[in-house]
Amino acid sequence: MPDKTALPVPAAGSVPAAGTAAPAPPAPPVRDGGGPRRRTRRHRWPVVVPFFVFLAVCFGLPAGTMVYGAFTVLDPASGTSELSTENVSGSLSGAYATGLTGSVELSAVTALLATVIGALIAQAVVSSPRAGLRGIVVSASGVLANFSGAPLAFAFIATLGTTGTVTQLFHLDRTGFSLYSFTGLVLAYLYFMIPLMVVIVLPALDGLRAQWQEAAASCGATRSQYWRHVGIPVLTPSLVGGAVLMFGTAFASHATAAVMVGSSQPLITIQIANALNGNVLVGQENLALAMSLNMVVIALLVMAVQIPLQRRSTRWLG
C-alpha cells in the first residue's frame, strides 16, 4: 500500500539534489533593539564618560576661558567688558608680531637641525654591530631629552656663558660667540631636542626590512641608490613627523630661554609671561590670552600636519 504522507514540494525552478535535506526556513528578524552587539555597545559607552569629563574640565574649560578673554576688552573707567578683536589684532602687530616670528624662526631652525643630526645618530646606532651600543644610546637619550628648563640654562651659563669654563678655556669671547643670542638658544635647544629625535626615529629605522636592501642589491643597486629610492622615501613621513614634533617642542619651550636670555631675544612665550606678570604694562592679561590663542592655532596646524604623516608612516613600517 503506497505511503500517502505529504512530502515537501520544492519551489518552482529549484530541484534539490538526491539525498539532500530541504533547506531550513529563514530565521525571523530580531526585534529586541539591535541584537547582542548593539546591547554590548550600549553597555560600554558609560566607560568613556570620565574621559570626556576630564577633557571638558582640563582642556575645554581653559580653552573656552582663553578664547573668551582674547576677544574681551575691559573698560578701565566703567569696569565693564565688551567683545572686541582689539587684543587679537594687537597680538599680531608691533613687538608681539616680532616675538611670534622669532619663536617660529627659532623652532624651525632647531627642528631642522635636530631632525638631521638625530636621524644620522639613530642610523649609526641601528647599523652598528655592537649590541650594547643601542641600550647605552637609548638610555642616555631618554635622560637628556628630559633635561631642559632652568637646570639646562644654568648648566649652559656655567659652561658657555661670559665667564663659563669652556669660554675661558678656549677664549670663545674673542670669536664673537655669545651664549645670550639666537645662536646660543639654538645650541641649548639642540641639547635636549637631538636626543628626543633619536628616540623618535629609532623605531622607524627598525621598520626598514632587511629584505628590501637585499632585493635592491640583487637588482644591482648600490647602497646610496637604495637609500635614495627606497629608504629615504619610506622614512620621509616619519622624519617629517619628527620634525613637526620638534617644532612644537621648541615652540612651546619657555624656561630655558627665560633664564638664559630673558627679554633680550623676542620670543612669544617670554612676552606672554611678561604680560601676565605685568612686567611691561599693567592690565594686559587679555592681550596675553590673545597671544596664547595664536600659539594654540599654530599648535593645531602642527598637529594637523603630524597626524596624517604618522598614519602613513605606520602603514609603511607597521
Rank of each mutant, 00 (worst) to 15 (best):
T159Y: 15
L106W: 02
L190A: 11
V138Y: 03
V116F: 09
L113D: 04
I157G: 08
A150W: 08
A124K: 05
A131K: 06
T98W: 10
T165M: 14
M197H: 03
A97V: 14
H171M: 01
G94Q: 13
S107F: 06
A150Q: 05
V137A: 00
L112T: 15
F192Q: 01
G99D: 12
F182M: 07
T183Y: 09
L100R: 05
T175W: 08
L172I: 04
A153M: 05
I121M: 13
R134K: 14
R134P: 05
P129Q: 02
S141G: 01
R174S: 02
P129S: 04
A119H: 06
P195F: 00
G176D: 03
S128I: 15
L185F: 09
A140P: 00
L190D: 14
A108Y: 15
V109N: 02
S139F: 11
N87W: 09
F177L: 12
G99T: 08
L100Y: 02
S103D: 03
A140L: 09
G149W: 01
R130G: 12
I117D: 09
V104N: 07
S93L: 13
F154G: 00
S84Y: 10
V137S: 02
F154V: 02
T163V: 08
V109D: 09
V116S: 12
A95C: 13
A108D: 14
R134I: 08
T163K: 05
A140R: 00
F170V: 14
L187D: 00
G118E: 12
G132Q: 11
S89H: 11
G149L: 08
A155H: 03
E105M: 15
L196C: 05
Y180A: 12
I194E: 02
T101P: 03
L92W: 15
V143G: 04
G90Q: 11
G118R: 06
A131T: 13
T159H: 08
L83V: 14
I117L: 14
S89T: 12
I121V: 15
L83W: 07
N146P: 06
L113I: 14
S84I: 15
Y189L: 06
S84T: 14
S178H: 15
V88D: 01
T110E: 06
